[in-house]
Write a protein that binds this DNA or RNA. Structure first.
Length: 598
DNA sequence: TCTGATGCGTC
DNA sequence: GTCGGAC
DNA sequence: GTCCGACGACGCATCAGA
């Protein structure tokens, strides 16, 4: 298969929308199957920008090679046209490059890449560069590639048997084959967890005890269990494996249909330092599907509830230029809290999500007038966080986060802690601009520290209380108290003023969906007492104890905030880079050939 | 050989 | 991990 | 409801450079 064909397909896909992307790729795969089926594997991998199954040894091209690739592009004199590239040539070359290591590895890789690039013609270079940069940006990912494969198999089969089928029938056949492909994909035991992740010092001498909490069984004695309902998988898990104190446990769980029980269990989980619960159906739609969100696996976390969870008002110290669909506006910001005693702003976190396109456009405009030459003395941040643009303290963002953590990079409250370590936020997201606050009204360093501490105290109080007992039952009873805890949660909210424009706190459900199965039934589950209308579904709740281990997640649609947003200005930055001159400081360009799931 | 920076994976 | 946008 | 691609903190392993 000529590489050019592939590149042209990618180009088309980029311009198409919706299902047409899948059709296009499906047709390409069909052609491949027809002409040189042996190339199909490489084609599939390259479509998802991988060099092999992820359980195999790391086949990732490292170093800042994406930029190298871009830059070396301009130096191509292209005097003679080398012979055309093919899929296997490119694929094998990339694998080879990825495997180079040892002394001079980077230099060798660079020259190999230059070589490959100079063989490129026309459109080929663009996609090669994108592959090296780790971002294909054609709006087509793993799920769509699987669908395309299903389509291709259908078409190939039909061609082979010389059958003709009409529209609806064809679509139905495609659907079945897509399903087959996806099921097979789930059943192949090539999950990441099977690859031995090399950790040099597995014995953790930080005093932190580490344990594995088993919660599912997908493959046993050579048989995939993916199509079995959770109840059965769990039964097999529990009857065939043994708990080992200190290392292997079964995830703590409760089987119930009662939302009060769920709420109690949730509270308990939080007190035990868990992030929350996974709520799963035991029997209905309870098979296992990877890489997917569904209603039969729901995540319940405290920070999903409006008005609960940590909220801070932080000053925009600087911003970073946006990439991809954020080109032309800022893609993220550096935020800080205010330390009144030193009159300094100390970085707390960067922020890059929660914005609508409209938000970003508006902010870009506002901030142009606040730009200053260089970071003032009273801005405290790690050099590695240096923003592309720096602003005078002015704009204040309200931010929500899941947790407050000690940070190796950020400076917040670093003058107030014993060890001089700073504080940062886990999973920060933008809520809105606080027009009503000046920069020095922002959350103070002291408040940030206070929030961190009360979070710790909160988590500790229960642990101390029942220290010594339980801690390792696989089925946990329910809790009793819970009201005082919610108060504590509220206390950590630093945006007192919020209520101003938010007289009525719309409480959002703390439940979101997760990967696994698809449609089940409707279920809404407010944290506060209100019982839930449920059909016959049984909920099974998982959580781990103490220093928890967690997995799985997913979002449920929020409310719509602004129904509208100005057109997104996606631009092709590397193409621009070709046209112009070497992109001067394209910091942080990722250079893996990757995609983080198999 | 050591160390600081950073790639890349986890959440 | 979170989130918004397009379909 | 799905899928995709913007973006977060942080820790380990690795590599360039001393």
């Amino acid at each position: 298969v000529p590489f050019k064909e592939f590149a042209q397909t990618l180009e088309k896909i980029e311009d198409l929308s919706g299902k047409k992307k899948i059709d296009e790729l499906g047709q390409f795969f069909t052609k491949v199957l027809d002409f040189s089926p042996e190339d199909l594997t490489a084609c599939v991998y390259m479509s998802v920008n991988q060099l092999g199954p992820s359980y195999e040894e790391d086949l990732r091209i490292k170093g800042d090679l994406g930029t190298v690739a871009q830059q070396s592009r301009q130096n191509q004199k292209t005097l003679i046209q080398p012979k055309p590239l093919t899929i296997p040539i490119v694929f094998n070359k990339l694998v080879k490059i990825a495997k180079i290591n040892g002394k001079e590895a980077t230099t060798t890789k660079i020259s190999e890449i230059k070589g490959l690039l100079s063989s490129c013609q026309g459109i080929e270079a663009r996609f090669l560069v994108r592959m090296l940069a780790g971002k294909m940006r054609i709006g087509l990912g793993e799920q769509s590639v699987l669908s395309a494969l299903g389509h291709a198999l259908t078409l190939a089969k039909l061609a082979e048997t010389n059958k003709k089928v009409s529209g609806d029938k064809l679509d139905a056949m495609k659907d079945t084959n897509v399903k087959r492909v996806k099921t097979a994909y789930c059943e192949c035991p090539n999950y990441d967890l099977l690859s031995t992740r090399k950790r040099k010092n597995a014995t953790d001498d930080n005093g932190v005890k580490v344990g594995v909490f088993l919660f599912d069984l997908l493959y046993f004695n050579g048989k995939p269990l993916v199509r079995e309902p959770l109840r059965k998988r769990r039964e097999l898990l529990r009857s065939n494996f043994k708990k080992i104190d200190g290392s292997f446990y079964f995830a703590t769980s409760v089987d119930t249909m009662d939302t009060d029980e769920i709420n109690s269990f949730f509270d308990e989980a939080i007190q035990n330092k868990c992030e929350g619960l996974m709520i799963k159906t035991l029997d209905t739609e309870a098979t296992y599907e990877i890489s997917r969100r569904s209603k039969s696996w729901l995540k319940m976390k405290k920070d999903y509830v409006d008005g609960i969870g940590d909220t801070l008002d932080l000053v925009v110290m600087g911003a970073y230029v946006g990439n991809g669909k954020r080109t032309g506006v800022y893609g993220g910001y550096l935020l800080g809290c205010y330390n009144p005693s030193t009159e300094e702003y100390e970085s707390v976190c960067k922020i890059g999500t929660g914005f609508s396109d409209e938000d970003l456009a508006e902010q870009f405009k506002i901030l142009q007038e606040k730009k200053i030459e260089k970071a003032p003395m009273y801005y405290q941040f790690d050099p590695t966080l240096k923003p592309d643009d720096i602003f005078a303290p002015h704009l204040v963002f309200e931010i929500k986060c899941a947790d407050i953590t000690i940070s190796p990079r950020h400076k917040a409250a670093s003058g107030l802690t014993e060890d001089g370590k700073g504080i940062s936020l886990r999973f920060p997201r933008f809520l809105r601009i606080r027009d009503d606050k000046n920069a020095d009204d922002a959350t103070s360093s002291e408040q940030v520290l206070e929030m961190y501490r009360s979070q710790e105290i909160f988590a500790n109080q229960k642990i101390e209380a029942d220290d010594g007992e339980e801690d390792d039952d696989d089925v946990v009873g329910e809790d009793e108290e819970k009201d005082e805890e919610e108060e504590d949660l509220n206390k950590t909210n630093a945006s007192e003023g919020s209520s101003k424009e938010n007289p009525v706190e719309k409480k959002k459900s703390p439940v979101k969906q997760s990967p696994a199965k698809k449609d089940a039934e409707k279920s809404k589950s407010p944290l506060k007492s209100t019982p839930v209308e449920k059909k016959k579904t049984v909920a099974s709740i998982f959580s781990s104890t103490k220093k928890s281990v967690k997995k799985e997640e997913s979002p449920i649609k929020k409310k719509k905030k602004n129904e509208f947003s100005s057109d997104s200005d996606s631009e092709d930055s590397e193409d621009d880079a070709f046209a112009k001159k070497a992109q001067p400081k394209k910091k942080r360009s990722r250079v893996a050939i990757d995609s983080d799931s198999e």
